[in-house]
Simulated scan of single mutants.
Amino acid sequence: MPVPARTRTTETPRTLLPDLVYDNLLTLVISGDLAPGELLREEEIAAWLDVSRTPVRDAITRLRDQGLVVYRPNRGTRVAEIDLDQARAIGQTLAALHGMAARLALPNLTPDDIQHIRDLIADPADLTDQLNAGPVQVTAVQRILQIFRERSGNPVLDEAIRRLQPHMTRLRGLTSDEMPRDWVRERGGAALTAIDAGSPELIGQLMQGFFLTFSENLLAEASQQLGLPLTPAS
């Protein structure tokens, strides 16, 4: 398994060592630096991060629980191949979760939250986010979804989204990672209307539909890039 130049993982008061190791491996998987099918050797990863094998083993277990790495007898532990049918199921699930988050969040949105959403929809051009590097349209949408998650008041829902989201992020790395600005503004304008109307059901339906459309577009482009067939959506 090729790894970057040796580095040292330093534990901070707010971040435990196992979490840092996990974060490092997660970043390598979703960025494609660790390619689908690549063998993961605990000793190499431990040497790269200058840690013992225990936190590495724990991190790999977490990634396996997320479906991002797999273990096969006689083949070892490898980065999971991209499965577009599974990705579609994950996208559909995330769409439902984001819709629920928006529905729960609406009564908890502050005036500052709403203004922030308006600003993101109206003019995302100056926004940058290293964690979501790419066209600003995607970054703006990610921030809007994050506001809903944070205001949902449901940590279980938030954790479920965090566990599934890396699968979509992997696909984004294979695509142009773009959404038409006019499309974002049109859907965002409808969301603002639902927020102003104080309708949790409407905002939930809109955000679920928004993410589902985004997911299907992502799958279609990833299918072309990978040369893999994509079953028509039912």
Rank of each mutant, 00 (worst) to 15 (best):
G204A: 05
T213E: 15
L145H: 13
W183N: 01
G188H: 11
D126E: 10
A140D: 08
T169S: 10
P124R: 00
M207Y: 07
L212R: 15
Q137F: 00
D119C: 03
T213I: 06
R172P: 07
E159H: 14
R149Q: 14
L192G: 00
V156L: 15
I117W: 00
T169V: 13
I147K: 04
R185L: 03
L212Y: 12
A133H: 13
L212C: 11
L145D: 10
Q130P: 14
D182A: 13
R149E: 14
A125T: 15
T110A: 14
D182C: 05
H167F: 13
L212I: 08
H167G: 06
D112H: 03
D158I: 11
I195Y: 00
W183P: 03
R118S: 10
D112R: 06
A140F: 01
R149G: 04
G134K: 05
A190C: 05
R151L: 06
R181A: 04
E178I: 11
I195A: 03
S152R: 12
H116R: 10
R185I: 03
V141T: 12
I203R: 00
L171Q: 04
N108L: 13
V156A: 15
A197E: 13
A190F: 05
W183D: 06
G209V: 04
D119V: 04
A133M: 08
Q115V: 02
R170F: 08
A190M: 08
D123N: 13
S176E: 15
T139W: 02
W183M: 01
S176R: 09
H116S: 09
H116Q: 11
